[in-house]
Simulated scan of single mutants.
Amino acid sequence: MRVLIISDTHGQDGAIMEICRREKRIDVLLHAGDSEGSEAFYREYMRCVTHFVAGNCDGFCRLPSWEVFPLGKHTAFLTHGHRYGVFGAQVPDALTAAARENGADIAVFGHSHIPLVEEKEGILCVNPGSLARPRQAGHRPSYAVMEIGDADQAINCRIRYL
């Protein structure tokens, strides 16, 4: 299973076309908030399973602030992060605690616009950074691709840059 993880696109949606040219097959799209109303565009363009949560810039939308769902034999906790103390390139304890309380072994979040893949207390934590307004050194738009093995369910997750 190939999972594309994006966040903080802020209505600037053209990058998804370049990502799809590069990545070929995507089975699941996770958007960790601040899509600013672009959910229908992504659902139609990607034509795969999609999960979206509301970010602090998503205003009065009907998206949930967090969601828990299976990814293969794993369980993912998807949130934007602003309600869990996400700031900079760190994984706050409140985020891993929320993931654990919901039975998740994967926590996907955004908000900081800084990419990160880190295992913390047995939970794989992934922040894809931002495609629209990157804040890390070099300021390159970023996203993550997670591959989950069919047979062994092993996870390989990497940050990629445009």
Rank of each mutant, 00 (worst) to 15 (best):
P134H: 11
L116Y: 01
P64A: 09
M17N: 06
E36P: 03
R62N: 14
D27K: 08
G55Q: 06
T75Y: 02
G149C: 14
D13L: 08
L71P: 02
Y143R: 03
T96C: 08
R158P: 00
G81H: 03
G37E: 13
P141S: 15
Y45S: 01
E23L: 09
V91R: 08
A32E: 07
I155S: 05
R47E: 14
A99W: 01
L95C: 09
A154E: 10
D93G: 09
F41K: 05
P70T: 06
G14A: 14
R21W: 04
D58T: 08
F41S: 12
K120D: 02
H10L: 12
T75E: 00
H82E: 03
G122D: 06
Q12T: 07
E118Y: 04
D27T: 09
A94D: 14
P128N: 07
D150A: 15
V108N: 00
I155C: 08
G103I: 03
R22S: 13
E23G: 01
G33D: 06
P134N: 10
R133S: 10
V108I: 13
I159A: 03
G72R: 06
R62P: 00
A137S: 12
Y161T: 10
S142R: 00
A154V: 05
N56A: 08
Q90P: 00
G138D: 12
E44R: 14
K24A: 11
L116K: 04
R158M: 02
A15R: 01
L30K: 05
S142P: 02
Q90E: 14
E101L: 08
I148V: 15
D8A: 05
A94P: 05
D93V: 13
D34Y: 10
R22G: 12
T50D: 02
K73N: 13
A40K: 14
M1R: 06
A15F: 01
C157S: 02
F41V: 11
I5L: 06
I19G: 02
H80M: 07
P141H: 03
E147S: 15
M146E: 11
V126M: 07
V108E: 01
P64S: 12
E121Y: 03
G110C: 03
D8Q: 04
D58F: 06
G103M: 05
V68H: 10
E44H: 11
V3F: 03
N102D: 00
R43I: 09
V49D: 13
E44L: 08
F41R: 04
E18W: 03
R2E: 08
S7D: 08
I123K: 05
C57M: 15
G37L: 11
S142M: 02
P64Q: 09
R21Y: 02
H111P: 02
M1G: 10
D152Y: 06
A107M: 01
V49A: 13
T9H: 05
M46W: 05
A89E: 14
G110A: 02
N102G: 04
S7C: 07
